[in-house]
Amino acid sequence: MPTILLLIVSNLFMTVAWYWHLKGGMSKPLFTVIMISWAIAFVEYCFAVPANRIGYASGFTPGQLKIMQEAIALTIFGGFMVLVLGEALSWRHFAAFGCIMAAVGFLFVGR
């Protein structure tokens, strides 16, 4: 459970680091946006690295950790896309999410 919670927090920061500038930050110089994003990403790493270390020590494989991270990232990005960027979800988003969830299932079968 600590691994999942740390990955959620990590992905919240990473989503902001990658996409915050698309809404209201497009007028900022690219170098400034990169520096701000790196600062936010530093915080993300402070959660992601312990999440992976704890998860690996708890018996998760690197593949399982990665697919968990991707599933969490897509979930968080979906919310960010709707709530912050103002875009609508379509059937394609749900179909893609379903494929990622199937990948999660495949990696955890027999664990």
Score class of each variant (00 low, 15 high):
1 M>H: 06
1 M>I: 05
1 M>V: 04
2 P>V: 03
3 T>R: 00
3 T>W: 01
4 I>H: 07
5 L>R: 11
6 L>F: 03
6 L>I: 00
6 L>G: 01
8 I>W: 02
8 I>A: 04
8 I>T: 03
8 I>H: 02
9 V>W: 00
9 V>P: 01
10 S>I: 06
11 N>T: 00
12 L>I: 12
13 F>G: 12
13 F>C: 11
14 M>E: 05
15 T>F: 07
15 T>Y: 06
17 A>G: 05
17 A>N: 10
18 W>P: 03
19 Y>F: 14
19 Y>K: 14
19 Y>D: 14
19 Y>C: 11
19 Y>Q: 13
22 L>G: 11
22 L>A: 11
22 L>V: 13
23 K>A: 14
23 K>T: 13
24 G>N: 10
24 G>A: 11
24 G>T: 11
25 G>Q: 12
27 S>Y: 09
27 S>I: 12
30 L>Q: 05
30 L>A: 07
32 T>Q: 05
32 T>D: 07
32 T>L: 08
33 V>Y: 03
33 V>R: 09
33 V>M: 07
34 I>W: 08
35 M>Y: 12
36 I>G: 06
36 I>N: 09
37 S>P: 12
37 S>M: 12
37 S>K: 13
39 A>D: 03
41 A>G: 10
42 F>L: 14
42 F>G: 15
45 Y>L: 15
45 Y>F: 14
46 C>P: 09
47 F>D: 13
47 F>P: 15
50 P>E: 15
50 P>W: 14
50 P>G: 14
50 P>V: 15
51 A>K: 05
52 N>F: 11
53 R>A: 13
53 R>Y: 10
53 R>M: 11
53 R>P: 05
53 R>T: 14
54 I>Q: 10
55 G>F: 08
56 Y>K: 06
56 Y>T: 04
57 A>V: 04
57 A>P: 04
59 G>V: 12
60 F>A: 00
60 F>Q: 01
61 T>W: 00
61 T>E: 01
62 P>C: 02
62 P>S: 03
63 G>R: 07
65 L>F: 08
65 L>K: 08
65 L>V: 09
65 L>C: 07
65 L>S: 04
66 K>Y: 00
66 K>E: 00
69 Q>K: 12
70 E>R: 09
71 A>G: 06
72 I>N: 09
74 L>G: 06
74 L>W: 07
75 T>W: 13
75 T>C: 15
75 T>G: 15
79 G>R: 10
79 G>V: 09
80 F>V: 03
81 M>H: 13
81 M>F: 12
82 V>C: 13
82 V>Q: 12
83 L>Y: 12
86 G>C: 08
88 A>Q: 13
88 A>V: 09
89 L>W: 14
92 R>I: 06
93 H>K: 13
93 H>T: 08
93 H>S: 11
94 F>H: 08
94 F>C: 05
95 A>K: 04
96 A>W: 01
96 A>C: 02
97 F>Y: 07
97 F>W: 04
98 G>Y: 01
98 G>E: 03
99 C>I: 15
100 I>Q: 10
100 I>T: 13
100 I>S: 04
102 A>Q: 03
102 A>I: 07
102 A>Y: 03
103 A>D: 02
103 A>M: 00
103 A>N: 00
104 V>R: 03
104 V>A: 05
105 G>I: 01
106 F>K: 00
107 L>Y: 10
107 L>R: 06
107 L>N: 08
108 F>I: 03
109 V>F: 02
109 V>A: 02
110 G>Y: 05
110 G>P: 06
110 G>H: 07
110 G>R: 11
111 R>I: 10
